[in-house]
Deep mutational scan, measured.
Amino acid sequence: EDTPTSDDLEQFAKQFKQRRIKLGFTQADVGLALGTLYGNVFSQTTICRFEALQLSFKNMCKLKPLLNKWLEEADSS
């Protein structure tokens, strides 16, 4: 899998936040949902820092596919 560039991550974080708000989920909701879906719960702080691009590049890269999958799930339900 290609490592995203920081531009990709920035773009995704922006879109993710917009979609999340549009779908009516809080950052805490997302963190809990990730726990339900993938077995690891993320704190509201982590989601907040992802959206604000304040996590390390490595952590951003790790979270992106999970959040992307969550968006697909949320969109289809």
Results as ranks from 00 to 15, higher is better:
Arg20Tyr: 02
Phe57Gln: 12
Lys17Gln: 12
Glu51Asn: 00
Ala28Arg: 10
Leu23Pro: 00
Thr5Phe: 09
Leu23Tyr: 08
Pro4Ser: 12
Glu51Ser: 00
Thr3Gly: 05
Leu37Pro: 05
Leu63Val: 06
Asp75Tyr: 11
Ile21Leu: 12
Asp7Pro: 08
Val41Phe: 07
Lys58Asp: 10
Gly24Trp: 01
Phe50Gly: 01
Val41Gly: 13
Gln15Leu: 10
Thr3Leu: 10
Gly39Glu: 06
Thr5Lys: 11
Ser56Phe: 00
Arg19Tyr: 02
Ser76Trp: 07
Glu1Asp: 12
Glu1Gly: 11
Asp8Gly: 11
Leu53Ser: 12
Ile47Trp: 01
Gln27Gly: 04
Met60Gln: 03
Gln11Phe: 10
Val30Tyr: 02
Leu9Ala: 03
Arg49Lys: 14
Leu66Ala: 08
Arg20Trp: 00
Lys58Asn: 14
Arg19Thr: 11
Phe16His: 00
Lys22Asn: 09
Thr26Val: 01
Asn40Ile: 11
Ile21Tyr: 03
Gly24Tyr: 00
Gly35Pro: 02
Asp2Glu: 11
Phe16Glu: 02
Ser77Ile: 11
Phe16Arg: 02
Leu63His: 03
Asn59Lys: 12
Leu63Ile: 08
Val41Trp: 13
Leu66Arg: 06
Pro65Arg: 07
Thr3Ala: 04
Leu53Trp: 03
Trp70Lys: 01
Asp8Cys: 09
Asp2Pro: 08
Phe57Val: 11
Ser6Tyr: 15
Glu1His: 03
Thr36Pro: 08
Lys64His: 11
Thr45Val: 10
Asn59Thr: 11
Gln44His: 11
Thr5Leu: 11
Asp2Phe: 08
Lys14Leu: 10
Gln54Leu: 05
Leu34Glu: 00
Ala28Asn: 12
Gln18Pro: 00
Lys22Met: 10
Arg20Asn: 00
Ala13Ile: 09
Phe12Asp: 03
Thr26Arg: 03
Asp7Lys: 14
Ser6Asn: 11
Leu67Val: 03
Thr45Ala: 11
Tyr38Asp: 11
Phe50Asn: 00
Pro65Lys: 06
Ile47His: 02
Leu37Glu: 12
Leu23Met: 14
Phe12Gln: 01
Leu55Phe: 05
Phe25Ala: 07
Ala52Pro: 01
Ala33Val: 05
Val30Arg: 00
Lys14Asp: 12
Gly31Trp: 06
Asn68Gln: 05
Cys48Phe: 07
Gln54Asn: 09
Lys22Leu: 11
Gln27Leu: 07
Tyr38Val: 09
Leu55Ser: 03
Gln18Tyr: 05
Leu37Thr: 14
Gly31Gln: 07
Thr46Ala: 07
Gln11Ala: 13
Gly24His: 03
Leu34Met: 11
Asn59Arg: 15
Lys14Ile: 06
Ile47Glu: 01
Lys69Asp: 06
Met60Arg: 02
Leu53Ile: 12
Phe25Ser: 03
Ile47Met: 03
Asn68Thr: 14
Lys17Val: 05
Asn68Ser: 15
Ala28Lys: 15
Lys69Tyr: 15
Leu71Met: 15
Val30Met: 02
Gly31Ile: 04
Val41Thr: 13
Cys48His: 12
Arg20Ala: 00
Asp2Thr: 14
Lys69Leu: 08
Leu9Thr: 05
Tyr38Leu: 04
Leu34Asp: 01
Glu73Val: 10
Ser43Lys: 08
Leu34Cys: 06
Gly35Trp: 06
Gln54Gly: 06
Ser76Gln: 14
Phe25Leu: 10
Gln27Phe: 04
Arg19Cys: 08
Cys61Met: 10
Cys61Ser: 07
Lys17Tyr: 04
Asp29Phe: 02
Gln11Lys: 13
Glu72Gly: 07
Ala74Ser: 07
Cys48Gly: 13
Gly31Met: 05
Ala28Thr: 07
Asn59Ala: 13
Ser6Leu: 14
Gln15Ser: 13
Gln15Asp: 12
Lys62Trp: 07
Ala28Phe: 03
Lys64Met: 10
Glu51Trp: 00
Lys22Asp: 14
Gly31Cys: 12
Glu51Asp: 02
Phe42Asn: 03
Pro4Met: 15
Met60Ser: 04
Phe42Met: 12
Asp2Met: 13
Ile47Cys: 01
Leu67Phe: 04
Glu1Ser: 07
Phe25Gln: 04
Lys58Leu: 07
Val41Glu: 14
Ala28Met: 06
Leu71Ser: 06
Ser43Pro: 09
Lys62Leu: 12
Leu55Arg: 03
Lys17Phe: 00
Leu32Arg: 11
Asp2Tyr: 11
Trp70Gly: 01
Lys62Asp: 11
Cys61Val: 11
Glu51Lys: 02
Ala74Gln: 11
Ile21Asn: 05
Val30Ser: 00
Gln44Arg: 10
Glu73Ala: 08
Ala33Cys: 07
Pro65Asp: 09
Leu71Phe: 02
Ala13Met: 06
Ala52Glu: 14
Lys62Ser: 11
Ala13Cys: 08
Leu55Asn: 02
Ser76Asp: 14
Phe57Ala: 09
Leu66Glu: 02
Leu66Asn: 03
Ser77Cys: 07
Leu53Ala: 13
Thr26Cys: 03
Gly31Ser: 14
Ser76Gly: 13
Arg19Pro: 00
Leu32Met: 04
Ser77Gly: 15
Asp8Asn: 14
Pro4Glu: 13
Lys22Pro: 00
Ala13Ser: 06
Ile21Cys: 06
Leu23Ala: 07
Phe42Ala: 12
Gln11Val: 12
Lys64Val: 08
Thr36Leu: 07
Phe25His: 06
Gly35Phe: 07
Leu32Ser: 07
Met60Ala: 07
Glu10Tyr: 14
Gln27Trp: 05
Gly39Asn: 12
Ser76Pro: 12
Phe57Lys: 14
Glu73Ile: 12
Leu66Ile: 10
Glu72Ala: 12
Glu10Met: 13
Glu1Asn: 15
Asp75Asn: 11
Gly39Val: 00
Pro65Met: 08
Leu66Pro: 04
Thr5Asp: 11
Leu53Val: 12
Leu34Thr: 01
Asp75Ser: 14
Pro4Val: 15
Asp8Ala: 12
Gln15Tyr: 15
Glu72Thr: 10
Leu9Ser: 03
Phe42Thr: 10
Ser76Asn: 13
Ala13Thr: 06
Ala52Arg: 07
Leu34Trp: 00
Thr26Ala: 04
Leu71Cys: 01
Thr3Arg: 10
Leu9Ile: 15
Gln18Cys: 08
Ala33Met: 10
Glu72Tyr: 06
Ala33Leu: 05
Asp8Glu: 15
Leu34His: 00
Asp7Arg: 14
Gln18Glu: 13
Gln54His: 07
Ala28Pro: 01
Arg19Met: 09
Lys17Ser: 05
Gly24Lys: 05
Leu34Lys: 04
Leu53Phe: 10
Thr46Gly: 02
Ser43Gln: 07
Asn40Lys: 12
Pro4Phe: 15
Phe50Gln: 02
Leu23Phe: 04
